[in-house]
Design a binder for these strands. Sequence first.
DNA 1: TTACTAAAGTGACATATATCACACGAAGAA
DNA 2: TTCTTCGTGTGATATATGTCACTTTAGTAA
Lengths: 211, 211
Amino acid sequence: MLSYTTHDLVQAFPIFDESLADFIIEHGESKLFSAGEVMMRPGQFFKYAMLIVKGRVKLYREGVEGEEFFMYYLENGNACALSMLCMARNQSSTIMAVALEETEVIMIPIQLMDSLMKNYPTWYHFVIETYRSRFEELLTVVDHIAFKNMDERLEWYLKRQASSLGNDLMLTHQQIAHDLNSSREVISRLLKKMEKNGQISMERNTIHWLG
Amino acid sequence: MLSYTTHDLVQAFPIFDESLADFIIEHGESKLFSAGEVMMRPGQFFKYAMLIVKGRVKLYREGVEGEEFFMYYLENGNACALSMLCMARNQSSTIMAVALEETEVIMIPIQLMDSLMKNYPTWYHFVIETYRSRFEELLTVVDHIAFKNMDERLEWYLKRQASSLGNDLMLTHQQIAHDLNSSREVISRLLKKMEKNGQISMERNTIHWLG
DNA sequence: TTACTAAAGTGACATATATCACACGAAGAA
DNA sequence: TTCTTCGTGTGATATATGTCACTTTAGTAA
């Protein structure tokens, strides 16, 4: 039993109808992750589908030698597609998820999925939409690494960051290099160019997106 | 009304139970694509979910300047995750699908999805499994282009081709270069190395995978 | 056979990115 | 203040891959 009102939940997940929201409030569990906490790691199994109510989660892929590669953020109103997929198949996750800020999630036990699917069409539409949007996002990621050079990838990266975190990005060049699986020097040089072009301005630890 | 027997269908899609197979036979439509035919292109809308009964479909992403990038094959027993996702949202596709051989599909009209989801748990499990496996495949693709050099990517590519098409691959170096968004000369040189290492042998138009 | 075409091989060079080495300056600690 | 650390700037160089020009070879058509 969660402490949300139906209204809260429908506000965060506008696609839900009231009966679905009630059901989730009745049967869901709530969990709080603190900033920096790992929410999901490769090899982990899931017994819950996770809905993000508050906060921000960074999803990234890990390479065999510990490289990182940023995929996307999950925010208020999103669900973790992978938790749903893995849970449904009792398969282990293949991705890292880390809370960027304090993050509040609703956890829906696996046993309820069949009945949700069966009885709440808006749930099923929500699930489909979750898969679809993540799938598309992943396709866009593939596009960029397959077809684009680092300058365009960096630009796209900053654009996404800005639309998710706001125009003042507290990022070091090193962090960006990690997220793009590149190196700091390369990123520094490309940022310099973007600054000259008037696309960004820079301070220590911060990049201002002027899009 | 399709001309399959329940038994045929359950053989191709072992996860289906008999009542589901019956329902699909009753309400699905059948369609034949000839080799080389485009089954799906970016911008196209879907009114059907597609199940592949026979043949082989190549899915790839197109770059803005016409570059290609191979993603995966769909074969007997697979469904097209994207057709299901796009259909469900009435969104347009973002990927190219081309029949490699003569390919037979069952098309399930969008109006039936809700009732399938509601009444046939094995359908819903099938859909989830379809999403999950394609999502994972896409993650693996991301891994390779994000973290690996061309030699490893080529090796992985050939391995996948071999496991899908058999060990004698009728591919030109140029085709491979397209699929990996690289250039023929690079692929030729890398193949030469692999031949020296005893991983493959080559003839004109053919590569023998010796894995 | 000869001629033609598509596939494949190969050297030279161009470019993007990675790596190394080191300098500089801002912010925080002592 | 001084010292230290961390983020950043920058040149030199290495490496992987892309591009160009040309040759060779295998299959095929005439």
